[in-house]
Design a protein around this nucleic acid. Structure first.
Length: 920
DNA sequence: GGCGTGACTTAGTATCTACGCG
DNA sequence: CGCGTAGATACTAAGTCACGCC
């Protein structure tokens, strides 16, 4: 929603920026630690502990006219705001449930809506529609098995009823890594003024302003970025990084003092304070422009001016003027050279070769490949290729055919084992899976084999054996396990790293996929097919021209081909054995500078959409009634993508699962419900079901009706449209714009506004809850679902039992209080033991503690129930601009590691020095 | 324009790990 | 101090989108 820039106490009271960027931020450490994740996770709100409506078509009760089962998941629709026009329809408060909390929710949601409306009005409509509207989306899961239901959307708006409650233990946190990385949110930071300033302004305006961004442009993660990982990294690596830090700092004109070394505990990380060097360096290097200037001084610049400067600095924005540039990465970039084997990289980084041998990794301070040039992704690339899975060791266990043991060759046994092992999975009984498996296995058995029918095979002996092996493994002593692990590590170590332009980077998937049975999602026509073992002769290696060619790990075999293409980022690839038209690539890990760079560009592109969203919405709104059908379809499709965060929807082949996205929606996926609601029900990516009923603008409603007219259910709704046309159109509006940018935009925008709006004073765990709530909003908008864990019900039951127990205890305490007041001794405990005699005050204290405990546990329970089908991780990893999170953590003194795992910290290294007042 | 190829991001789930609890 | 779990990571499937060719 439009950011309601409610003035934030935190801000006002202030955090102040330490003007001096040089000081690392130190967050207060609170004492006890145990602030467990549980608490941090729990959301205060309780959603009716409701029974999941598995299976039932979920509709948002409110929105769906027929009010089907209230679903836990059905997001309440917040309002069906028409897109650009600011006539937000009055809150329709579609609450799904009327539990007391829901009621509360509703009122809150009304409020939010009106706020939202107001904001939108003056905010030039930047609120992602999806956020505003997706409200009542009730999505559900694909499969029958797991009931993933969509969450109600409104939740975020619900009052965090537990928010201010003080919870014992919760206040503690350890000293955050973050603190190390963050800038102190300290005193009198100009930012605070700016912020409050900001607060009065419509978001849209703000968005054009904030200048902090510039500083945040930190393509290079090398510095702070990698620090967190060092903990685990080898000495070599660590040293290399340190080197790099210094190298880079010195190589660029930067304020050196912004680079800090600080140790957290004894981890000894090297950190860069927020307004770091990196940013400057990078920006300098990258675009050849030097942001430096804006940097620190920026703080004195009114926000209003700042944002502009940002734009001129950020790649994307700079693109604006020149259409061409915009696309830097994509279009402009790749073209011609792509296929050409890259020119010899001239500079060979000698150190890197050495480095591979395990010595030092001196870091070239040079920069990241800037993808703005589009073509060259690296100059030197050194790596050791890929590692292959061990060859199959036969176990000799025989399957039974019509009750009798059958001899199998090693190869036949291997495949039989793949199947046997899946005995307890859903796949095992799926006809399609069995058929595909049988076809491939039969080819190995040969036509004349004793085994003629899969159904007559009994694989349980192998399955039993498999279970035993698993158990054995589990029973190993921790020493044995450790030894095994080390051995594996030793074997793999050399494949884990690559040196890119002199920088040691982790390789993502350096293991060649082992053979197995294809586990396609949903009703995939190829499920169960044998994924054969990949041999070296099928693998193409991509490596620097002057780097040593990795030795083929399988004796007597060789690579298919060795290329030296520096316009691509893959290190190796092979063709997918299941789909010969596709490839499997080996890339660098997400923590690499190369990935970080493109990640940052992605977010900048989305962020730039803020500057155009208004006109885009105006355009499509105008075209809802266009004469030309194609034009109208584009308008409506864009609207849906914007409003509901739908995926583009490329065409699919028959040999893939039958799923759709926006452009491929079928007439039957959409039902018009007068007067102007549309019910969506389709399988999207990964065959995750999307069920949502939304109110749309009347012209959209009418248009959809027209698109359906005279067609059968299986026909394309948008028959004049495909993703190419849609994206071509979007590109006309804003260079570089494609359908998926809207998802990123909506997700990040939502997070940003929710955080600004909802964060209140409180302890860290309460704030973390606010974050999670916002994260959940996003997950719901994007329809990120997960299967309910097998043990979910049991866990809830357990918690429930505990709560009951606690309540009984509470009663006893209350009885004893009464007795104490009357001067009577306490009753005996349930265990028959004598209870200590206490005075009233002591009993009261105990009662209060007990209540807190109960509330906390109930909250945990509800959160668990609430989130059982919502996957928060996906959006965090892929859609939420980490700078929003970093800035929020800084503003509110929340240790960043409460939000990001170690891996995510490494991945988002480039974002770590975002300013506290960063706005998406 | 439509289609196939290629490269890269996004996705859910399987498996591993670390941590709190009895 | 072992056990069970939740959370983190690994794995790989399934998307998006650009390009080049016809």
């Amino acid at each position: 929603m439009a950011t309601e820039t409610v003035s934030n106490p935190e801000v006002e009271n202030g955090y102040e920026e330490d003007d001096d960027d040089n000081k690392p931020i130190v967050f207060k450490r609170r004492s006890s630690v145990a602030s467990n994740s549980n608490q941090s996770k729990s959301t205060p709100q309780r959603s009716n502990a409701v029974p999941s409506t598995k299976g039932s078509p979920l509709r948002s009760p409110v929105t769906s006219p027929n009010g089907t089962t209230p679903s836990n998941r059905s997001p309440t629709m917040k309002s069906s705001m028409p897109s650009s026009s600011s006539k937000a329809s009055p809150a329709k408060s579609p609450l799904r449930n009327d539990t007391p909390s829901a009621v509360k929710d509703r009122s809150q949601s009304h409020k939010d809506q009106s706020e939202c409306k107001r904001e939108r009005e003056d905010s030039e409509d930047n609120t992602p529609l999806s956020f505003i509207l997706s409200g009542n989306s009730s999505r559900q899961n694909k499969g029958s098995t797991s009931s993933r239901q969509p969450e109600k959307k409104n939740s975020g708006d619900r009052p965090l009823d537990g928010e201010n409650r003080v919870i014992k233990d919760e206040s503690d946190d350890e000293t955050p890594i973050s603190s190390i990385m963050q800038k102190k949110v300290g005193s009198g930071m100009s930012g605070s003024k700016q912020v409050s300033n900001d607060e009065k302004k419509p978001l849209a305006k703000k968005l054009h302003q904030n200048g902090s961004v510039v500083k945040n442009e930190v393509p290079n993660c090398k510095v702070s970025g990698k620090r967190p990982l060092e903990k685990n990294s080898t000495a070599d690596e660590a040293s290399s990084k340190k080197l790099k830090v210094s190298a880079s700092t010195s190589s660029v004109k930067v304020k050196q003092d912004s680079v800090k070394t600080e140790s957290s505990g004894d981890k000894g990380r090297v950190l860069v304070s927020p307004k770091s060097t990196k940013a400057k360096q990078l920006s300098t290097r990258e675009d050849g422009t030097d942001d430096d200037d804006d940097d620190d001084d920026d703080d004195d610049v009114p926000l209003s001016k700042r944002r502009k400067s940002v734009s001129s600095n950020s790649k994307f924005s700079s693109e604006k003027p020149k259409a061409v540039k915009v696309n830097s990465t994509s279009s402009a970039a790749k073209p011609k050279v792509r296929k050409v084997v890259s020119p010899p990289s001239r500079t060979i980084n000698k150190t890197s070769n050495k480095a591979m041998k395990g010595s030092k990794y001196s870091t070239s301070s040079k920069s990241l490949p800037s993808s703005s040039d589009g073509q060259k992704k690296w100059t030197t690339l050194v790596h050791n290729g890929v590692i292959f899975p061990p060859s199959y060791k036969p176990h000799g266990i025989k399957i039974l055919y019509k009750g009798k043991p059958v001899d199998l060759t090693t190869e036949q046994e291997e495949v039989a084992t793949m199947f046997a092992v899946m005995k307890e999975t859903d796949y095992y009984n799926k006809p399609q899976f069995r058929e595909n498996f049988w076809n491939d296995w039969r080819a190995l058995l040969g036509k004349k084999h004793v085994i003629q029918k899969l159904d007559d095979c009994d694989f349980s002996p192998i399955y039993e054996w498999h279970l035993q092996e698993k158990e054995k493994k589990k029973q190993m002593s921790s020493e044995e396990k450790k030894a095994l692990k080390e051995e594996k590590l030793k074997l793999e170590e050399k494949y884990m790293w690559a040196v890119v332009d002199g920088v040691k980077e982790r390789v993502g998937n350096f293991r060649v996929e082992p053979p197995g049975l294809f586990r396609g999602r949903g009703e995939h026509p190829k499920m169960g097919k044998l994924k054969k073992r990949i041999r070296p002769c099928e693998i193409t290696i991509n490596i620097g021209k002057d780097a040593p060619i990795p030795e083929c790990p399988i004796p007597g075999e060789r690579w298919k081909e060795v290329k030296h293409d520096n316009t691509v980022t893959w290190l190796a690839f092979w063709t997918d054995p299941i789909n010969q038209r596709e490839f499997k690539y080996v890339f660098l890990a997400a923590s690499s500078a190369l990935k970080g760079q493109s990640d940052k560009e992605k977010y900048e592109k989305a962020r730039n959409l803020t500057n155009h969203i208004e006109s885009i919405r105006a355009t499509y709104t105008k075209n809802f009634t266009a004469k030309d059908v194609a034009k109208r379809q584009i308008a409506v499709a864009t609207y849906l993508i914007d409003k509901l965060a739908l995926r583009a929807g490329n065409e699919k082949d028959d040999d893939e699962a039958d799923t759709v996205g926006c452009c491929t929606l079928k007439v039957g996926n959409v039902v018009c419900k007068p007067p102007n609601k549309i019910e969506f029900d389709f399988l999207g990516k990964d065959s995750i079901r999307y069920v949502n009923t939304v109110e749309v603008e009347p012209p959209v409603y009418k248009a959809i009706g027209q698109f359906q007219a005279g067609k059968s259910k299986a026909d394309d709704l948008f028959d004049e449209l495909d993703t190419n046309k849609l994206n071509a159109h979007l590109k006309e509006l804003v260079p570089g714009l494609t359908a998926k940018v809207f998802r990123t935009y909506n997700a990040s925008f939502t997070l940003d506004s929710q955080l600004w709006k909802k964060t209140r004073d409180g302890d860290v765990n309460q704030k973390v809850q606010v974050y999670q709530q916002a994260n959940k909003e996003v997950a719901i908008i994007c329809n990120h679902q997960r299967a309910v864990s097998k043990s979910h019900d049991a866990q809830i039951e357990k918690l429930d039992a505990k709560v009951k127990e606690l309540r009984t205890g509470l009663k006893d305490l209350e009885t004893n209080l009464e007795r104490a007041k009357k001067g009577k001794p306490p009753l005996e405990g349930s265990d028959g033991k004598k209870t200590r005699n206490l005075d009233s005050a002591a009993w009261e204290k105990k009662i209060a503690q007990q209540k807190v405990k109960i509330e906390r546990m109930e909250r945990d329970m509800h959160t668990k129930e609430d989130l059982k089908t919502v996957a928060l991780g996906t959006s965090k990893i892929n859609y939420l601009d980490p700078r929003i999170t970093v800035a929020w953590c800084k503003r509110h003194e929340v240790p960043i590691e409460k939000i990001f795992t170690k891996t995510l910290l490494a991945k988002f290294a480039w974002a770590m020095d975002a300013e506290p007042d960063f706005r998406f």
